[in-house]
Amino acid sequence: MKSYQALTIALCLVFITACGSSGEQTQVKDDVSNQAPPQTNNEQPIEIPSVEKVIDHSPLLAIQAVAAMGIGINLGNTLDAPHEGEWALAAEEKYLVDFKAAGFQHVRIPVTWHNHVATQAPYLVESAWMDRVEQIVDWALQQDLYVILNAHHEAWLKNDYSNQANKNRFDAIWLQITDRFKHKSNKLIFEILNEPNGMSMSQINQQNNRTLSIIRNTNPTRLVVYSGNGYTPVDSMLDAAIPDANDQYLIANFHSYDPWPFAGQCLQTWGTEQDKLALEEIYQRANTWSQTNGIPVTVNEFGAAKYDFTAPENICDLNERLEYLKSHVAFSHKYGIAATFWDDGGSFSTYVRAQGIWGPEMNVLVEAPLQD
């Protein structure tokens, strides 16, 4: 914990007026107010502290990692909920054991930091929350899974990016994440920001550059996932600026629930040859961009709802859903794009957490028998 404590002191020095001249740390309450930082632009950008870099003598190149990641699964609606347990059952180590046993090669752990971070400088993350995130990451790494850790819903930043206090708070979050996890396995991957809807392309380009510089300050070879803006369809990935074209540890990312009226709302059918060609075109375009730019690609969210959770009477046909998922998997393999099934413990799930059993989707996603 010494490095985390040292970073706390460093952040306090950066925000000396907030911590007080005595150097005492601002108290982080157990339940941080669900508010964004005050609407002010009086703060100056955070200076990235000078620290010793962690040198990995056997780093994983992004192209190697993506080739090995195959099909993965999201631990959705868990740490990305306002508080764990509110949207889905809280995480258990057994889930990660079962993910590995089923044949998944990676897991994405979405995390929404907002409710667990102070709203005043130096924007300290609750120590109990950081411990919990680390515990779940360690469970996954112990299963020898690739692990994607991100900043997920963070609407306070996305909806008011011009506020310098918001930028500083987000920078402080990533400074603390990188400090806590800097010595972890190189199979731990950082994803900068999930679906920055509300941000312009120039804003997400700026934030991608900034967060990458924070990560590289400690981990020069840590794998990093970035995306474009909005809900990150393939077009936004193609249009986004590459944060560093010479960085061999960068992975570009998009999401695909195409077409949403089928995959999310259950309002139309799916499965014609034209449907499959339209989906394949998305993967083709991503692959062409990847080959041109020398940057591997992931689609770290794809899936098909069992029903529209906003209109539960709209139910998707099981056979069409399975054919849709099968097509995603086939195209991801064909075009060398790692893909992560969105499992939220509810409408988009295949793993029944309460019973530790799998639905029929799992056999389509990975080549493994159903688990009892």
Rank of each mutant, 00 (worst) to 15 (best):
Q248C: 00
I177A: 10
G303L: 03
R353L: 10
T298D: 02
A121D: 01
R169C: 04
G271V: 02
N363V: 14
L79S: 07
V137H: 01
S162Y: 09
W270D: 04
L277M: 09
I204N: 02
S213C: 03
K94V: 11
L238P: 01
N163W: 03
W260S: 11
I173L: 13
G228P: 04
S58C: 11
S256H: 01
V133P: 03
A6I: 02
D247Q: 07
A102Y: 07
D239S: 14
D160E: 12
I46V: 15
D258N: 12
F15N: 14
A338Q: 04
Q164V: 13
S200I: 01
Q25D: 12
L188K: 06
Q25R: 15
V111K: 04
G356A: 04
H152K: 07
F262G: 05
L370T: 15
L318Y: 07
G359H: 08
N219F: 01
Q35N: 12
S236V: 01
V133Q: 06
E24V: 15
A165Q: 10
K2Q: 15
G345P: 07
S349H: 08
C266I: 04
Q35Y: 09
C266G: 04
N300F: 02
A102T: 12
I215E: 02
S3W: 00
Q203R: 05
L318S: 14
N168Q: 05
D275P: 06
Y324K: 12
L75V: 12
G103N: 10
Y351Q: 06
Q284L: 00
S327V: 11
E86C: 11
A88W: 01
D56F: 05
D31T: 13
K187Q: 13
W270L: 04
A68Q: 15
D258Y: 13
H116T: 08
A286Q: 00
K184H: 15
W129H: 13
K184E: 13
W87D: 09
F341H: 13
D275Q: 07
D235H: 07
H57Q: 13
G230N: 08
S58I: 08
T232S: 09
Y146E: 00
A311R: 14
W342K: 07
P261Q: 03
D235M: 08
F302T: 00
E84G: 09
W139M: 05
E154Q: 10
P110W: 03
F302C: 04
Y249I: 06
V299H: 01
E367M: 09
A245P: 01
A81D: 08
S227K: 02
A245V: 14
Q105G: 15
N209S: 12
A305C: 02
I251L: 06
D247V: 02
S227T: 13
E367I: 05
V14I: 15
V32A: 11
I46Q: 06
R321D: 07
L188W: 05
R285L: 05
I315G: 10
R169H: 09
F15R: 06
L61N: 12
W358A: 00
P312C: 08
R132K: 13
S58G: 10
E92K: 15
S162R: 12
V14A: 15
A368P: 00
L238C: 03
K158F: 09
C266T: 02
D239R: 08
D247M: 03
S227N: 14
Y335K: 03
T119E: 10
F15D: 13
I315M: 10
